[in-house]
Simulated assay, not measured.
Amino acid sequence: MNQRVKGKNIIITGASGGIGEQMALKVAENGGNVALIARRLHLLENLKQTIEADYQTTVKIYQLDVAQYDEIPGVFTTIMDDFGEVHGLINNAGFGIFKEAHEAPFSVVKGMFEVNVLGLIACTGELLPHMRRQGFGHIINIASQAGKFATPKSSAYSASKHAVLGYTNSLRMEASRYGVQVTAVNPGPIATDFFSIADESGTYAKNVGKWMLNPHLVAEKVVNSLFTNRREINLPVWMNAGSVIYQLFPSFVEKVGNKLFFKK
Rank of each mutant, 00 (worst) to 15 (best):
A24D: 06
Q56L: 13
K263M: 13
K259N: 15
A241V: 13
I90M: 04
K99W: 00
R230D: 11
F262A: 05
W211F: 10
L36A: 10
V256C: 04
K221W: 02
S170H: 05
A175S: 11
N207P: 01
A93F: 06
Y167S: 04
V185M: 06
Y204V: 09
N234I: 08
N46C: 04
G32Q: 07
L25K: 12
H87G: 11
I51G: 03
N33E: 12
F106M: 07
Y167G: 01
L89F: 05
V253T: 07
D193W: 00
E254D: 15
M212A: 08
I140V: 15
V180G: 03
I12D: 05
N224T: 04
M131F: 14
P250E: 06
A146E: 04
F249S: 13
E71H: 13
T168E: 01
A219V: 06
N214C: 05
N2H: 11
I139Q: 04
N229P: 05
V244N: 06
I142P: 07
A24E: 05
E103A: 13
F76D: 08
S170P: 00
L217I: 09
V27S: 09
I142Q: 10
Q49D: 15
N207D: 13
A143Q: 08
L89V: 12
L120K: 12
T168N: 08
I37H: 05
I12K: 09
E100Q: 10
D70T: 15
F261V: 00
I11N: 01
N207H: 10
S176Q: 14
N9M: 09
V66C: 12
F149K: 10
I11M: 07
I197Q: 09
L36K: 09
I37N: 05
V223F: 02
V218G: 03
I10M: 02
G14Q: 07
G119H: 04
A184W: 00
T58D: 09
F83R: 14
L43D: 08
V86R: 05
A35Y: 02
N2V: 11
V256G: 01
A146I: 05
A35I: 04
T124L: 04
K153G: 00
K148G: 06
T168M: 08
C123L: 04
F106I: 03
N214M: 00
T57Y: 08
L36V: 13
G242K: 02
A122H: 11
V218Q: 03
N30S: 06
L127P: 01
K8N: 09
G242A: 02
Q68R: 15
Q49L: 15
S107N: 09
L118I: 14
I10S: 03
M1G: 10
E29C: 04
N224I: 00
S16L: 00
I197E: 10
K6M: 11
Y55S: 13
M23W: 08
A146C: 06
N207F: 02
I140E: 02
N214H: 00
F106D: 02
L127H: 01
A104C: 11
P215D: 07
K210H: 09
G137H: 11
V237Y: 12
M239E: 14
K161H: 03
A241E: 08
S243Y: 03
H42Q: 14
K161W: 01
V34F: 06
G88R: 03
A53Q: 15
K110Q: 15
